[in-house]
Amino acid sequence: MRYHAAKTFEEAASIAAKADGVTRFLAGGTDVLVQLRAGLVTPDDLIDLKHIDGVQDITRLDDGGWEIGVAVAGARLGAHEALCADWPGVVEGMELVGSTQVQGRATLTGNLCNGSPAADGVPGLVAAGAVAKIVGPDGMREIPIEEIPAGPGKTTLAKGELIAAVRLPARGAGGGDAYQRFIPRTEMDIAVAGCAINLRVEGDTITEARVAIGAVAPTIRLVPEAAELLVGSTLDAATADALAAAVSAAANPITDKRGTSEFRTEVVGVLARRVAQTAYDRAKGDRS
């Protein structure tokens, strides 16, 4: 195994582009090192990103959006008051990852690029309409987060490409987001189902919405047909039930050691109803 401490994203991209074996980027390492220790993935080239300038920064952009560096640990997101005020749903998803110890290392970008359909940090980003800044052999590009997962353990990133930052849009007025997952225990578990909803209200009426689901399909998914049901509503009981049904219908889970397909399908709908309520309350100014 060769360890590289890249100084720039371009350098990291060029090492990765030239590498011909198993390549991994090292952010928090809470997936990479665990997989290494378990003998699941032994990288030939391990490219550490933590020595690149700015990767630990959380930056407010001129348009009011946010840029989150690729080595920012979950615990830092949780400690960032302004970011929490804008995007509580994104932060609460990431904060569900692991334990206090894991929170000190684990990153949003690592969570995304590990490619788990159950990644807790990702539905919130997808619902928020976040984008990833990508550096690769052909230069820089930006793509929506939902275009990155490609199936369990896979991303759409090409050889030599890596994420240089994650960008969240400006929150704007009347917005609220939330994420919840279902696990049989209270922590230290992998989502059996997850749902994030981001919406905007004018008065009592929802004017914009995005719904993302996790752990119920090969990738984390955006469910536009569920979001459309919310828009124009005041989240009355009928809408909430329709939302739950639409989300369940969009789910296409497997049965495995963590839960059955029927259970996941049903529970993701239950979560959607509960998450929509929290996001709605937050949009209307209740910050809890």
């Binding site: 922590e187 230290m188 578990d189």
Partner: peptide, 16 residues
């Protein structure tokens, strides 16, 4: 055996 780690062999954690 498919759940041979504590992540999936679910003993209660303290907060449970």
């Amino acid at each position: 055996l498919q759940n041979s780690v504590f992540l999936d062999y679910r003993v209660p954690v303290a907060s449970d």
